[in-house]
Amino acid sequence: MPLLLVKNVTKVFGALIALRDVSFEVNRLEILGLIGPNGAGKSTLFNLISGFHRPDKGKILFKDTEITGLRVDRIAGMGIGRIFQEPTLFMQETVFENVFSGLHRHYREPAWKAFLHTRAANREEAVSREKAAEILEFMDLAAMRDELAANLPHGHQRSLAIAIALACEPELLLLDEPVTGMNPSETAVMSDKIRQIRERGITVLIVEHDMRAVMSLCDRIVVLNLGEKLVEGTPDRIKSDQRVIEAYLGKQVI
């Protein structure tokens, strides 16, 4: 049973067919890469999975449950985390608060209980604090836990965005260009981190332009072109596939 199943999905914006009859699956505990030239429909696909858009045709199943057309927060609550390319952080809060609030929301204890500081709420808060500290440690952010998010360097802001997503304990994490714009050593660190995330029991779906990173990181790759699935397979197969090379018009990296 695949964790995520995308089945014959089509999405049309006005006259533009953004996705046409796309199907693929994401298996539990794999790192799946989603690549393709600009305008291939990668972002649209992410938006469909996380619920920002609704497919015109086809369906999406998560853990065998249909999630097509559900609200964004319901899909997130079911265990699909998403990180945007530009990290969405609460800039005026500290690194710790950013993660802590995410945890808090995840547990959804009624606000009035926290307001009255009931014992259960207090205990829950203590657990949340511990958990937040652990996640920051994991993302190598422990040293800057009291910095304002706004003051972090860009690379660390990305780490923080991942930390916030981890706080919601997702089973599937959608990563939008996690290493784009990073230098080779930063890329290596981030790739390593993504593997460790998988070791935490989280399946990862990545959209990424940095081919070298994708090829070394992903177990399997799905290639989209002009809204249609071109091919899918292991990195080695993709590298040597003539259609992919044509689609990218002989990009040197491949």
Partner: peptide
């Protein structure tokens, strides 16, 4: 805290399952 977060970025809060 939730209200402040929503006023800053409602989408991000939605992605946290709220």
């Amino acid at each position: 805290r939730l209200m402040r977060a929503v006023s800053y970025d409602p989408e991000a809060v939605t992605l946290q399952g709220v």
